[in-house]
Write a protein that binds this DNA or RNA. Structure first.
Length: 512
RNA sequence: GAGACGGUAGCUCAGUCGGUAGAGCAAGUGCCUUUUAAGCACUGGGUCGCGGGUUCGAUUCCCGCCCGUCUCACCA
């Protein structure tokens, strides 16, 4: 598409017939002195405005100027109908050879589906009662050279949908033009995110931005993407979590902050995982995990109420009630409830035996071949047998300390921490704790992580010495909460795959 | 990373028990001035994902590869 050739109508001999035809139309417009890529076009209304005129007046006769993409054409002799779509909606327009001047009529007859045009005319209703515009002038705004997938619809049934999933993701712009549900999902996504921001800002939280590039990839247990800064000669990682930087800000005197932005994890892609995903983390000084629990309920019920106008979610064939208060169950308690396995007696054992845990897990058919530590086995039981059953909202609380290196111990039971994860629809949609602010304890926990890595555990939370220094300076008692925004949006938009809520999900580069 | 399934016209799909392919929509031409999946008639459009092998002949059978979907693994 970038030859030094002024004759764009013959750019590429190998183009298909359809594209050749469009190019020759482009040429013929140009020969008629029509600029098909003008700089400017002023609308008086968007299409929804025009449609609303028909609500207040049965047959309005208003002069309007609208613009949009031609979605369908129905030509009859020297007259015809088009459907034009802008962001707000779609409307039918009518014209003929007497309404239009010579150039206008030429454009009208030569138009293609996919062209972007501006039209002006008067609103009216056709014989069949369809709100329409009688067009007196047409302006070409952008010529469609690569044909759109054509989707037609009758009585709510869609014909020849643009359904190839791979093409939909690779060419999302076509997906958005042609599949209205896709556009709606991303409009909802935007509303959800802006509602989260205004909710938190209304509660006195400050939105902050911390680095995406870290010299130590810590704050979570995950594989990072690596990159390199040339002038500094320094390897860097894309962040896997903003946690440790946000706590630095709490130590610095910020008391209510949040960050809503991307994390990057160099791991498998699945229906629930994209390598870059949107995470929100909230930190509040002088609060603890029970405050975060209340906040979680408030945020999510508020979102569902304001954006979806309901307190009940439908996901696939499941119905989820968000009525508060949500249930609370302890981690080990819910494991026992769902599997009959009681791991509590091991809490007070200094070095519980992996083999004991494996025997228990295997007794209920959990595959634990890859587990290296006692608590990995327990977590395998949880994720294999418990998670998927947590459909209605529930807070899973009081995780074992060994699994939670950044959370503060419970004062009355040091082997457990003040931590919870909210589950909805069988998905972990967040993670929260009373933040560990004791530098001695934090250092030990990091060291345990390092030891676990040596023992063979694949992913641990990396040691960050500088963060220990932060805690030595002193961080107030703090509650922290993370919410996985993509999964929340999947839930709220009834989307089966994370790719349906990310505009441009990561796909392999297509060679040919 | 493993398995199952898929990739045929711009889109949605059919088909070829091995003899280089069809439909609808879209496109082109003609007719048609209130249609709406507009209609009628005619026409064009395909390296059947890519590369090998078997065969007189492969889009079809075999092998490898690429891309995707799903499941599993990984990912608290």
């Amino acid at each position: 598409m970038s030859e030094n050739n002024d004759d764009h109508s013959s750019e590429n001999q190998s183009e298909t017939e359809l594209i050749q035809q469009r190019l020759s139309k482009y040429k013929s417009f140009t020969e008629h002195g029509i600029n098909v890529y003008p700089n400017q076009f002023k609308r008086t209304h968007n299409i929804l405005d025009v449609l609303e005129m028909f609500n207040t007046n049965d047959v309005p006769q208003n002069k309007v100027i609208i613009a949009g993409r031609v979605m369908t054409r129905r030509a009859m002799g020297k007259a015809g109908f088009l459907n034009i779509k802008d962001f707000s909606g779609q409307i039918q327009v009518y014209s003929n050879n007497t309404l239009l001047n010579e150039n206008g009529y030429f454009v009208f007859t030569e138009l293609d589906i996919g062209d972007i045009i501006g039209v002006s005319g008067e609103t009216f209703k056709t014989k069949t009662g369809e709100p329409s515009i009688r067009v007196e002038s047409i302006t070409m705004l952008s010529k469609n050279l690569y044909p759109l997938p054509v989707v037609k619809e009758k009585d709510g049934v869609r014909f020849d949908a643009f359904a190839d999933v791979e093409q939909r993701y690779r060419r999302r712009y076509l997906d958005l033009i042609v599949n209205p549900d896709v556009k709606n999902t991303f409009v909802l996504r935007s509303k959800i995110i802006s509602e989260i921001r205004s909710f938190l800002i209304g509660r006195g939280f400050l939105e902050v931005e911390t680095p995406m590039m870290h010299s130590i990839a810590s704050g979570a247990a995950a594989k990072p993407f690596q990159t390199h800064h040339n002038t500094l000669g320094m390897d860097l990682f894309l962040r896997i979590a903003p946690e440790l930087h946000l706590k630095r800000l709490i130590a610095g005197g910020f008391e209510k902050i949040f960050e809503l932005n991307r994390n990057f994890r160099n791991e498998g892609i699945s229906i629930k995982h994209n390598p870059e995903f949107t995470m929100m983390e909230i930190y509040q000084a002088y609060a603890d995990y029970s405050d975060m629990m209340t906040l979680t309920e408030e945020i999510i019920t508020h979102l569902v109420k304001t954006v979806l106008k309901t307190d009940t979610l439908t996901y696939g064939d499941k119905t989820i009630s968000l009525k508060t208060p949500w249930e609370k169950k302890t981690y080990l308690g819910v494991i026992e409830e769902k599997t009959g396995l009681n791991f509590r007696p091991f809490l007070n054992t200094n070095d519980p035996s992996v083999e004991d845990a494996k025997k228990m897990a295997q007794s209920i058919g959990v595959d634990v071949k890859k587990c290296h530590t006692f608590w990995e086995v327990v977590d395998e039981v949880f994720s294999g047998k418990v998670e998927g059953t947590l459909i209605q909202p529930v807070f899973i609380t009081d995780f074992p300390k060994a699994m939670s290196p950044l959370a503060k111990s419970k004062p009355e039971e040091h082997v457990l921490v003040e931590r919870f994860e909210p589950y909805i629809n069988g998905w972990e949609i967040g993670n929260a704790f009373t933040e560990l602010n004791d530098p001695f304890d934090q250092k030990e926990r990091f060291e345990q992580q390092v030891a676990m890595k040596k023992a063979g555990q694949a992913e641990v939370i990396e040691m960050d010495e500088d963060f220990i220094d932060v805690l030595r300076v002193g961080m107030p008692p703090t509650g922290g909460l993370g919410i996985g925004i993509d999964r929340l949006i999947m839930l709220m938009t009834n989307s089966p795959s994370i790719k349906d809520v990310i505009l441009f999900p990561l796909l392999k580069k297509k060679e040919n």
